[in-house]
Computed example of a mutant assay.
Amino acid sequence: MIAASGFPPSGPLTAADLGTMPDDGHGHELLDGSLIVTPVPAVPHQRAVGNLYLRLREACSDDLEVMLTPLDIALSEITVLQPDLLVAPRDALEGEQMVGLPVLAIEVLSPGTRLIDLILKRAAFERAGVASYWAVDPDRPSITAWRLDGDEYVSDASAKGDESFRTDAPFPIELRPEELVR
């Protein structure tokens, strides 16, 4: 058996291995040493990302910055994730990479990544100590937010359709899920 070029013959992949991935237009992430490859997002996903980015930028405090993917968040040597959107302290966003953790990681769900985002990535951000995590569903317009309480996520806010979504973490914001997909 011949090992694929650039991959170790056995064992989990690392952040260094991730750096050898080809730039093929797909998203490449590591979750506990396993490679996750995601296709180019569809229009509803990108519309929700764009609209949410604009709304977050309007509400963001001066000490924080909103960033779009791709931006690697190294949670460990074998877990490197790229949330669709993140909010981080400005001083953590120097140079080529983010240093430290975001205060908010946001995933916009897609049919092919829904379970990864809702279960595996959420758990990874929780273990790493990311203060808040949101899941936005453009297909069934909704937003669900969790915040870290001790070492586990608890429900913070949620809304569907034209309901109002309100949270103060990491800054006060009010959204309506329906507006993110128009």
Rank of each mutant, 00 (worst) to 15 (best):
V43A: 15
W134R: 05
A15R: 13
L30S: 00
V66D: 08
P44C: 05
V103R: 03
L86E: 05
D168W: 12
G95F: 01
K160H: 15
L52G: 04
A4L: 11
H26W: 09
A128Y: 00
S142P: 08
P177M: 10
E163S: 05
V80L: 07
P89C: 12
D139F: 14
P102T: 10
H28E: 04
E77A: 15
D23Q: 15
I2Y: 15
I119F: 02
S164R: 09
P102S: 10
V103K: 01
S155F: 10
M21P: 08
V43M: 14
L71S: 10
P8R: 13
F7S: 06
A157C: 00
L93N: 00
H45W: 02
V37N: 01
A131T: 15
T79H: 09
L64G: 08
R55K: 15
P172I: 03
T79F: 13
P141F: 12
Q97P: 10
A159E: 06
Y133P: 04
A16W: 06
A157Q: 05
I2N: 11
R57P: 08
V103L: 08
E174L: 02
V130I: 02
D72M: 07
Q46C: 12
G100Q: 09
W134N: 01
G100N: 09
V40F: 15
A105L: 08
S158R: 00
D62Q: 10
P8N: 14
H26F: 12
D32F: 14
Q46V: 13
L64Q: 05
G150E: 03
I73L: 10
I73S: 04
G100C: 08
S155A: 13
L93W: 02
P44F: 05
G50I: 12
E77M: 10
L115C: 08
V40W: 08
V103I: 01
G19K: 05
L101D: 05
I173Q: 02
A16M: 03
G11S: 13
P177H: 10
P170Q: 05
S5Q: 13
P12Y: 05
R176H: 06
A15M: 09
S61K: 11
A59G: 09
K121G: 06
L13K: 07
L30M: 07
P89R: 15
L75C: 06
A3C: 12
L86A: 06
L71I: 15
R182A: 10
Q82E: 10
I78A: 09
P89N: 11
T113I: 01
K160T: 12
G129F: 09
G161Y: 04
H28K: 00
D156Y: 01
L101A: 09
M98T: 04
L68W: 15
V130S: 02
L56M: 12
N51S: 13
R166I: 14
E58T: 13
P8I: 11
P8D: 14
P9G: 03
D91N: 12
D63K: 10
T113V: 04
H45C: 03
T167Q: 06
T14R: 04
A135T: 00
V40G: 08
S61R: 09
P83C: 11
L118Y: 07
P9S: 07
I119Q: 09
N51A: 12
A48L: 04
P22Y: 08
D149W: 01
G19I: 05
G6Y: 05
Q46S: 11
Q46E: 13
S10E: 11
S164V: 14
S5D: 11
D117R: 00
L54R: 15
R166G: 08
D117F: 03
S5P: 10
L35Y: 04
L115R: 13
